[in-house]
């Protein structure tokens, strides 16, 4: 699924990464716990989270995540968006809750990650 399709499905605002909307995403992970993102996520993954701080971007950077969707309409501060921009991470913002956003993407065929 392309990032563009994720944005459409969630009626999301694109906060940065307009150049990357055609990036292919193969799976999704929803969590407010960055420790678990670092422990479980691999590959072309989009992270859905309601946690808004610099460490979400750092976590995405370290784990090579392509995109982040901030849920529950929680808009990050400018410096957080700038950090994402610097690291070529696409950031979307949706008013959906984590549960609803996950459900919409799952129903459209975007799989969750497989734990080892």
């Amino acid at each position: 699924m392309k990032v563009r399709e994720i944005a459409e499905a969630l009626n999301a605002e694109i906060l940065c990464g307009f150049d990357g909307l055609d990036t292919e995403i193969s799976c999704a992970f929803g969590s407010d716990l960055m420790s678990d993102v670092l422990a479980f996520v691999k590959g072309k993954t989009v992270l859905l989270t309601g946690l808004i701080n610099q460490q979400v971007i750092r976590t995405a950077e370290m784990a090579d995540l392509s995109a982040i969707v901030f849920v529950r309409g929680k808009k990050p501060e400018e410096d957080i968006i700038r950090l994402a921009q610097e690291n070529n991470i696409i950031v979307l913002l949706t008013r959906d809750t984590l549960y609803s956003a996950s459900g919409k993407l799952y129903a459209r065929g975007l799989a969750g990650i497989q734990l080892d």
Binding site: S35, L38, A39, L51
Partner: peptide, 15 residues
């Protein structure tokens, strides 16, 4: 609050 402290740090470093 920052999203850490799940007790995964050291084992994840090792992995």
């Amino acid at each position: 609050e920052m999203g850490f402290g799940a007790g995964m740090g050291l084992p994840n470093m090792k992995r």
